[in-house]
Write a protein that binds this DNA or RNA. Structure first.
Lengths: 97, 97
DNA sequence: GTAGAGAAGTTTATAATATAAACCAAATTA
DNA sequence: TAATTTGGTTTATATTATAAACTTCTCTAC
């Protein structure tokens, strides 16, 4: 009846990050921080988790002399997101059974 | 950009319970347990939280001589669920901006 | 009638998670 | 060159989810 929800995506901040990356293809750390309103610490931790799971790729480059952390969604991340949305529907569409 | 998600509903089991109650109007504890696959302990805790928040009503009756815990969604619960779904959309519809 | 099994939950202990505070290093500005 | 800002990471804490252990009652079976 209710499909299990990927615990990695069932987190407000991580879901926002993945959602954002799906729409933008890639984004820099400060931009993600701004869009999600998260603290840098929290964001850093959640990005690590998504990266460890292979849902996103993190590339540390430079922008001139400043460090620049670039995040990109992976195919696995897209798939996980789609499955999560699909699973969510089992919780949301109950009325229209 | 991303709307905050009611933490009380952003929980797999509690969301399942509320979702179930919205579709069935009222349900007994063992039935909810069966439908959600939760352990009795976990379900009891989560039902308490939903009840404390006023999202559901819990009535302890009897069925013959056996105790029977009946749960019912409240208007506040319906409203919270609808708002949660609305907020969720900000995370899911990014592609179609 | 009482010993054991089962149903219906509740309480409590533990494990996992989210979150921010504290910290670090480099670069820019005063 | 001292202070401030930028761009993060690490670590400590507080919250949450979850299941294990326990309680109470009922129903059989002896």
């Amino acid at each position: 009846m209710f499909k299990p929800l990927d615990p990695l995506l069932h987190s407000e901040l991580r879901l926002a990050v993945v959602s954002l990356l799906i729409s933008t293809e890639e984004a820099e750390f400060p931009y993600i921080r701004e869009q999600t309103g998260a603290t840098a610490g929290n964001l850093s931790v959640q990005i690590d988790k998504l990266s460890a799971a292979g849902y996103i790729e993190v590339e540390k480059t430079f922008k001139g002399r400043k460090p620049c952390t670039l995040c990109r969604i992976t195919p696995a991340g897209v798939k996980a997101f789609e499955e999560y949305v699909e699973a969510l529907k089992s919780y949301l569409k109950v009325k229209t059974k």
